[in-house]
Amino acid sequence: MAKKRMVMVIDVKRCLGCHTCAVACKSGNYLPNKVWWNRILTVGGKDMDTPEGVFPNLKMGFLPISCQHCENPACVKACPVGATYKREDGVVMQDYDRCIGCQYCIAACPYTEVRQFNVSEPEYYLPITKDKIGASAQQKGTVSKCIFCFTRLDDGKVPNCMELCPGRARYFGDLNDPASEVAKLLQSRQYNQLLVEKGTKPSVYYLT
């Protein structure tokens, strides 16, 4: 059987910038305060939710961004202790128990702020939300990031962020399976990838 390559496809035309997926990620992974693995950026002006151009000739879009699970991940190559590594199916993982907190991966990753450093003992507004995914694994002084909700993948589910996108903009699947929705979409539609010039070969595709 061919090796899997799990990818995410996001139709930016459908993205409303509503931040639902950002909060779904935060909730589903029980992320500590101020850690956002998945964020919605505005493609437009200098502030969030502002357009580019001059009234009334304006343009505004949104860019959901999280770890790009690169095929050639700069972070994996940078990590001196192998705390960040790639799974068989292409998911770039983060081993919080091994991470020494040098933050070299943050320096190496070209995708701004997708890797986040747990500056202090993780704090939760709601301590009851601690769970085996994320929360208990989150550790002070280590780096964390989107892990494509790998435990959910292992259970045959999709990542939290795409369980319900109100705009129905997200797709997830195995790109190496030509019958998958993602493979078909990438064949039929034009897409962008972020910072391809950095050579990372990201696994998040943005339909344009």
Partner: peptide, 23 residues
């Protein structure tokens, strides 16, 4: 209640949740 998530409706087009509903 440790968290909330989307529950599927009989017609999936009506499946819905937002960032507020998740918090």
């Amino acid at each position: 209640i440790i968290r909330t998530s989307m529950a599927s409706l009989p017609d999936e087009r009506y499946n819905r949740i937002c960032l507020r509903g998740l918090s």
